[in-house]
Write a protein that binds this DNA or RNA. Sequence first.
RNA 1: GCGGAUGUGGUGAAAUUGGUAGACACGCCAGACUUAGGAUCUGGUGCCGCGAGGCAUGGGGGUUCGAGUCCCUCCAUCCGCACCA
Length: 936
Amino acid sequence: MEYSFREIEKKWQYKWKQDKVYHVPNQSSKPKMYVLDMFPYPSGAGLHVGHPLGYIASDIFSRYKRLQGYNVLHPMGFDAFGLPAEQYAIDHGIHPAISTDQNIQNFKDQLHNIGFSYDWSREIKTSDPHYYRWTQWIFLQLFNSWYNRKSQKAESITGLIKIFETEGNDQYPFPNDRFRISITGSHIFSANEWNTFGEEERMNILIEYRLAYCGIGEVNWCEALGTVLANDEVVNGVSERGGHPVVKKKLRQWYLRITEYADRLLKGLQTVDFTDAMKEMQTNWIGKSSGAEIDFAIQDHPEKILKVYTTRPDTIFGVDFMVLAPEHNLVDLFTTTDQKNAVEEYIQFVQSRSERERMAEKKISGVFTGAFALNPFDGRQIPVWISEYVLAGYGTGAIMAVPSGDERDHKFAQHFNIPITNIIGDHYNGIEANPTKDAVLQNSGFLNGISMREALEPVIDKLEEQKIGTRKVNFKMRDAAFSRQRYWGEPFPITWKNGIAYPLDENKLPVILPPMDEIKPGKDGEGPLSNNEEWINNDLFEGGHAESSTMPGYAGSSWYFLRYMDPGNDKAFCDRSIADYWGQVDLYIGGTEHAVGHLLYSRMWTKALFDLGYIGFDEPFKKLLNQGMIQGSSRFVYRVHGTNQFVSFGLKDQYQVDAIHADVNFVDGLVLDQQAFRKWKAEYANAEFILENGVYICGAEVEKMSKSKFNTVNPDDIVEKYGADTFRMYEMFLGPIDQSKPWDTKGIEGVHRFLKKCWRLFMDDVKGLIVTDDKTAPAELKILHKTIRKIEEDTERFSFNTAVSTFMIAVNELGELKCHKKEILLPLLVLLTPYAPHIAEELYLQLKKVDSKLELATILDMAWPAWDQKHLVESSKEYPISINGKLRTTMIISLEASPSEVETMVLANEVVQKWVEGKSPKKIIFVKNKMVNLVV
RNA sequence: GCGGAUGUGGUGAAAUUGGUAGACACGCCAGACUUAGGAUCUGGUGCCGCGAGGCAUGGGGGUUCGAGUCCCUCCAUCCGCACCA
């Protein structure tokens, strides 16, 4: 009986589904294990071989833990809202709900082919009203909460109202310290004042505290398309589609007050098992810094002060100029008549620049406003400039520039010939800035002679004493923009009345996204929903009107791991007792591209739900494993310029050629299938080929796997040709899970051969099952037990590539010994089950036919074998013998031998004597079980 | 610009704690079996050299008896940067 993988895999996939073997109960006496993949966005292109990499890893781990006796939750679902479906709808007139469902079906078929152990009864999709009902519900919880800085947690807004009624906001300042109450102009109000405020004023104050709130934000606005664009839809200041100009536009937006969680998001990193790189990225994104806000007076504008934030107040005497973000609201006022034209021109230029461009720009640009600030300590005049390198959103949108200590400031000063004050003596060389904190200050008034590090605190004290500055902790992270001017997302459970946002009652949920025949942008930057007046003014909104924006992609993905636990619940997003049983995700697998977006948002949502008492843990993911990308290996053909002739790689240098991507699916290794190529596109139908050695050889290059580069490989094709087990093991065999590596279909045959060899240990093409009950030999036991140990170690540390090699070695070695003994092969089969479940299940079935003691319905529920040290003991080792660190020979030496015995043996060795040349060795280094090194 | 990661044979890689560099595969070469091979099996394969031997983990320097691994420095490539998901 030969290894007919197609038949076997189809059979078991069907049977496993019939028997519901992947159904996971919410109650069990077994320990729990939650293994989760980052759920996919179901794109129209379907899966390519890069996508399942992480899924295979998590599936292996899930199955491995199941064998070890865990109740393993391993679900899958779809992040189904998003821009591409909406764009597809605009381009093709197909409603996103329809194209999304088609895509999901396609994804599921592809996933099913690979034999994953997902419990599909728990499938979710974020665009399903049964799901987004709870996304809206959580939004309402955030809207109805505020962050109490005293208790350091989210609390109900009704509690805050009580505080305001009895004591005002004296103890609970506005999170945005620049906010002023419109009627009083103050940032403080008393209980009496609160009680006299009208409805509008109260709501306007409350929204300043809510965790979900409305504010004004800047977006990329494309007038010609009438729509807001994502950063990656903007290329060099124009829209990717159509090349129309894009400018910044201020729009009302929803936000989540994630900044209130900044400190806890930082602290929480200490409790989770993420890579250091990941923690570092999140830490940098949060960007906590401490320093001071300093008030600068402005000459001729006694009524205004210019606030700057700096982490280095110790350098205050080295300030040679100020830089404001061009958007800073005092720019207009400060600009002198002389400079007005230049400033306006510059602002217009900056308007067209994306934040990314501004930060990446190497060319220094800026304009002098004509105004001068005054140094608060010595009254020195400081010119005020504007430049794009200062961003409005960070700090106060203005900096004090210290060219001797900051590289960007230094370049700016050099470029515009601004004189540089040296406050650090020899530490500054006049050529480049030195950001040291260790220098002793000079030219620094009352700070002269003090080291910078020691000056930091006294300066802040003095600033506070003189009321010209305050100690300040700052975060680079901004509140998360939570609305999109799009159709295909969750509607907000909000009604607008007289310009005030009111929450809808929970029993009104879900607010269903209305079907629309045509999806096009609304007026004035509003989302497509604004065109549907009937819906906007629906009775549901209680006489008010609906929010026309929808929620962003990350809304649904910020909590989906909770819904899998209790997907059918229509009373709660997840039953508390079930959330308590499953708890944190034990292993979360996905790409690093989510390092600072999804992962921070879901961590924040988890903390908020924890604060409000809905779940019992405040970090969602205990361990995070990042999978690398699988890159494409592109193939090129070389067309002789201006002809329809294609010249093979080795001969291309003799011609003037254009390299053209050829579809990798009709290239075998590097050899082009000329017929397939001709059939590919009409323009190649009559292609002529200049061959070398009778074949056409393509060029190759590693690039991102993408349709446009014709280097995508569909897992369906691979599974059809080699089987799911081969595919799974080959993906793992490619290399470490966390590293990027190119796909090479050619290499898969080694893994396929391995599975066939493995099959032949059990089955003979003619005789059928050849497994025996013969007694085992020590050599065979040694192979088995070292394999168990290694597979266990490697699986635990997610080193799946080395695990696959270990299987190969074991099968090679057992093959050499012609071992067909059940006592060896059955445990081996259990080891193989997580990696290649179909073949393992089939061979188990074959074994069951001859062994009545095997009675489990499926090998998936066998017990993981234990390895025993007694089969692994060695009595001697082949030692490497080095002279002066260079390997010269090896010697087999007993592990019992004492150092002096080893020394004698080594010195007596012929090769050693030759190299020592009669000299007596200076030193002999002997490390037991490792090596011997002679120093002569 | 800022942040993160990665550089080892022709290719994917291994070397888990500083101790025999290249396991396991792909490819290639030679052979066996075969009407045939995109099947199976055997042997070989880092580079230079006839050989003794020498040289090799992106480049340069350092620590050490010993460095792919630790330190310094330079270079290259990839990824992220807030409306792609």
